[in-house]
Design a protein around this nucleic acid. Structure first.
Lengths: 175, 175, 175, 175
DNA sequence: AATGAATGAGATTTCATTCAT
DNA sequence: TATGAATGAAATCTCATTCAT
């Protein structure tokens, strides 16, 4: 039931109707509206995380650029497969209680850690603050995809991905 | 009156109370809630735009890096000076009617145009899609600043700016 | 199953759960919620009535005071044995449909009749309206016991009974 | 607005409609439904208390029987003047959260204290537990009046009062 | 017969907007 | 013009009842 949630008119009635169940049924499954959205995000997060880990695993020994590209392909793939949830995780989620960081919290850490490692190995500009760069890139990625999803004259998917790859700190600020 | 709007509980009653006027007065000045927020954003946009133009003018002939840095200093300065409005323009604005792109629409165009120019002059990676890159950087910039504004253990302002400078497509993807 | 009904959250779901059966099963046994409560009360009423009759029978020829005391001992004994049902009969029952007088209807009649008899025999204050007195005493009795059941610093059971005996119209208004 | 509340269908909509205001207006005046009922009871309590004090003052030096009668006349008068509120205070109030003792808490104390005094002066049966007797009489009084208010073939008001006077512990258990 | 997930009417509550003062 | 009490449509949530398994 979470799986099918579209969420344009995000109110309990439409959520329920859209899911094809009665209002009461909704409240049998979720404590309240927030609980539902949290669950919806959490599910998406888990799924996205799995996709990203798979992409990472598949490019384990490869060049950094390949790793980054694989992650982006997975990320965009997720967005295309479930745009409603993607919007929830990366856009609507923001306006919920500030505790729910939506999907934003997801990759920070991973990117941040990777950048630290690369800095130590001298592969990346030491002037970069990894925390800032990680958050900035995560936002760039998600917002660019959000725009791309709904703008009718957005470029090709490959253009999107190619550009984002080039903007990833590990690529753009490589030494 | 627009100027002083804080907007935690963004409902007309609190907006009015917070602005120190009656609800009725609020509706004397603005068609409706959306009109107010639009006006609030527009005012901010204009102010921010002025700051950015000033920064640009002040670094007219200088190196690209200096120009980018000056813009970022202006951007962060604006956020620090009026964080409530900044949040409205770059975070809350998203969840409003999709027509109001908030502050996001602001710099796209400028960055996009600049990137086109640099690509033509062969100064920047031709693999970059300027529309994507511009939007991505704009999002990176605004979201990073949003985070920096409210995270108590965010880094120094200079770290923030230095890092964002290095991530700007015109710098990061320079040839 | 009726027997075990505790009823703090008096809604069909908790009633069923508390009784250890499914909601559906509940509706197999009772027309609806009201029917259940009616049945629950009726069962209690019957049981209480039996206790009172037994007490009466056991003190058939004795002094009025002994008869009254025996009834009160039975009444309090019932309350102690099944406080949840007692509460239903004498407290919650009131807020149900006004037709269900709960346990209150029970003793009126008996007390009323007894008072009539005593008045005719000249044993009791003729200024007493038996209908009023009977209802008043019934309420006094049940509400006092309700309070006594749940107030942690209520007096001894014997104090409760001794006092109620002395307040019974047949004792208090004896000539 | 509290003053005019009839409350048969005690739900916020009917309360508001019955008071001749919109639903929203209701919530401008009261935090929530419970707050309203509490306020409604509190107002009634205060009014009743004033009536009782006046009755007491008016019969200050008189015989106990006169004092008791005056209180009862005041009590019944209150019930007749505002039966809806009386029902709320002494019947519906019970089924609210157990914290709201409704009107029941009102006279206990006064009666209890009076009985203690009379016991010390040797005017009243020392076998009476004042706490029990006070609560019992309070309940007798209120429940008898409730019944009297709504039973079409209830006796005259004077019968009601005469009988309750005779049942008051200070009269009935006088030595 | 027993079950409990599903239901939806109805109760509570919020909030953008109006309007009499 | 400024005000804020009043409004009611719409949102959230509850719970007695049904029905497919």
């Amino acid at each position: 039931m979470i799986a099918e949630c579209g969420l344009e008119g995000v109110n309990t009635n439409s959520i329920a109707r859209r899911a094809g169940v009665g209002v009461g049924t909704f409240y049998r499954h979720f404590e309240d509206k927030h609980a539902f959205l949290r669950a919806c995000m959490a599910e998406g997060l888990e799924s996205l995380q799995a996709d990203l880990l798979a992409a990472q695993a598949a490019t384990a020994g490869a060049e950094v650029r390949e790793q980054v590209r694989a992650s982006l392909v997975a990320f965009v793939g997720f967005a295309v497969r479930d745009p409603a949830r993607f919007r929830l995780m990366f856009s609507l989620g923001h306006s919920l209680s500030p505790r729910f960081r939506g999907g934003r919290g997801l990759s920070h850490r991973a990117v941040e850690r990777a950048l630290y490692g690369m800095q130590e190995r001298g592969d990346v500009d030491p002037g970069l603050n990894p925390a800032v760069a990680a958050r900035a890139f995560t936002a760039a990625q998600s917002q660019a995809v959000l725009w791309w999803l709904q703008d009718p004259d957005a470029p090709e998917e490959s253009d999107l991905i190619d550009t984002l790859v080039r903007l990833h700190p590990a690529i753009a600020c490589r030494i």
